[in-house]
């Protein structure tokens, strides 16, 4: 069974925060999901061989300067902005 400590670690990686109650509920559900995913463990396949689409050179665009989204559009949806930038609280003293 996945431990509460492991769940807390996953919360940290996911930048999420669960209450004690949610954590316990999640623990049960998550175990069932992991069991379900673990069906693949017995499959006999070469793990080195995975399918990845390779970029073909002709797919690359010309390296031309073109207008991109204007700054005011880029920050249009920001909850906090200052002087054309995304604004966040001070991170250093």
């Amino acid at each position: 069974m996945i431990s509460i400590e492991e769940i807390k670690h996953l919360e940290e990686l996911s930048k999420l925060q669960f209450s004690e109650e949610e954590r316990e509920k999640f623990q049960k559900e998550f175990d069932a999901i992991i069991d379900f995913a673990s069906q693949i463990s017995n499959a006999d396949v070469d793990s080195g061989k995975s399918f990845i689409k390779t970029i073909k050179m002709q797919d690359l665009r010309e390296d031309e300067i073109k207008p991109s989204l204007p700054q005011d559009q880029v920050i249009l949806n920001a909850p906090s902005k200052k002087k054309g930038c995304f604004a966040v609280p001070k991170i250093m003293d």
Partner: peptide, 15 residues
């Protein structure tokens, strides 16, 4: 390796 890489290998196999 046990989950993600294995799943990608199985994806290649299924394909």
């Amino acid at each position: 390796d046990a989950y993600y890489n294995k799943a990608r290998a199985l994806q290649a196999k299924l394909r």
